[in-house]
Simulated assay, not measured.
Amino acid sequence: MSSIYYDHAATTPMHEDVIRAYVEAASAGPGNASSLHALGRAARSRITAARDTLARCLGCEASELVFTSGGTESDNAALFGAAWAQRDKGRTGIVTSAIEHHAVLHACRQLEKQGFKLTVLPVDGQGRVSIADAKAAIDDTTAVVSIMAGNNETGTLQPVAEIGEWARLHKAAMHVDAVQAFGYLPIDLSVMPIDLLSLSAHKINGPQGVGLLYVRKGTPYQPLLHGGSQERKRRAGTENVAGIAAFAKAAELAVADRDGRVRHVETIRDRFVSELTRLIGKDAFVVNAEAAARLPHIANVSFAGIRSENMLMNLDLSGVSASGGSACTSGSLQPSHVLQAMGLSPEIVASAVRFSFGLGNTSEEAEKTAQIIATIWARLRN
């Protein structure tokens, strides 16, 4: 049975050039970048080169980048690191949105338990935060504002530039989770009003287990991890040299061909939706957040009357990999907090399936998947 992988928002296959970069770095010897001998210096050189590459991709200074273990650590380090530092200045407000990844929401709840005042902004039916609501919530007591660039379940884009400008006026640190958006949206940190930015390699055809946190020069920040003096004392722990080298290669490839990546996944997404419409009719399903400006590689689709776990099980048996929502909760039967925050009906929420596209996918696969869904839909509806 052939396999169709439509879960790129969860994790992506590694690009063959990225694999080569990883193997080359991993085969270079047992180099600890903190060691002073030749092997250690070679490892340090690889990390420096990777940091320089990523800085060029992001439009920032290399010294502003901190390597982490992934998106979750980057989100936590940004929130706790900036909030703790800002509390020393008398700032205790945290502002975020109801549709953030749990790496942000759960961290914010922990900060609330530590005495911070948490404001969770609502979203509209397309999953978008209101700029007016954000401005009303941000004031001179706000420590950190955390709004994601593009949602990992629906793809909805957020007005991070406008909110970041307002945060800057009030000297609040602006954090953006760009884990899902990097590689699809242009990011130039030299001009964007962003103080902290989170990225993860495995979302852009890089390796799992390595991420990045951008900390703008001058941003109040305290390290989350303590130990050695790695990453300019901002993140203790021996660096993942091979992973970092591969991350830089993945980022370089993603940024160089960003327009091509966007066209590729948009073509597949649009073919998939059009074929579904042709085969089962436009009234048989709903593309959630379809009217919003969205990331191009995500289609969150609800098939009313068919629970998402039933659709996913049948898709899996037919060789199609998709998801019930966020990768970190897709194994759970809990309803999507994102779709609930959008005010969608329980039936729509309970029947949602996330299809996400990327490297290796084709329009022919999109047509085949639509045919498979049509067969499953007819069987389960009857």
Rank of each mutant, 00 (worst) to 15 (best):
L54A: 08
F285E: 09
A352E: 02
F285N: 08
A350Y: 05
G360D: 07
D17W: 01
A55C: 09
H37A: 04
F303H: 08
A98K: 03
N152K: 01
L58D: 02
R263Y: 00
V287M: 12
A33K: 08
P220G: 09
N288M: 11
A289G: 05
D7W: 02
E165A: 14
E239N: 12
A98Q: 06
C57N: 07
I204K: 05
V265S: 00
A50I: 10
I47R: 13
C328G: 02
M311D: 06
A248E: 08
L380F: 07
T11S: 14
D195I: 06
A21I: 10
N382L: 10
F182Y: 15
A42C: 00
R41P: 01
R235S: 05
A374H: 11
K203V: 05
Q110H: 11
E364Q: 14
A293I: 07
A248Q: 03
V286K: 15
I187E: 00
N32T: 00
S198L: 03
A181R: 03
L121A: 09
L157V: 01
I19Y: 06
D75N: 15
G228E: 02
H264W: 05
L65W: 09
Q158D: 03
T142A: 03
C108W: 07
C60R: 07
I19G: 06
L344Y: 11
H337I: 07
E61Y: 09
I244Y: 09
A21E: 14
S27G: 09
T362P: 02
A161Q: 10
M14R: 12
R44F: 08
F272M: 03
C328V: 13
G164T: 13
G211C: 04
I147T: 04
A256S: 15
I19R: 14
C60M: 07
S63P: 04
R261G: 02
G29V: 06
S302L: 11
I99N: 13
V66K: 04
H8S: 11
T141I: 07
V287E: 15
Q158F: 05
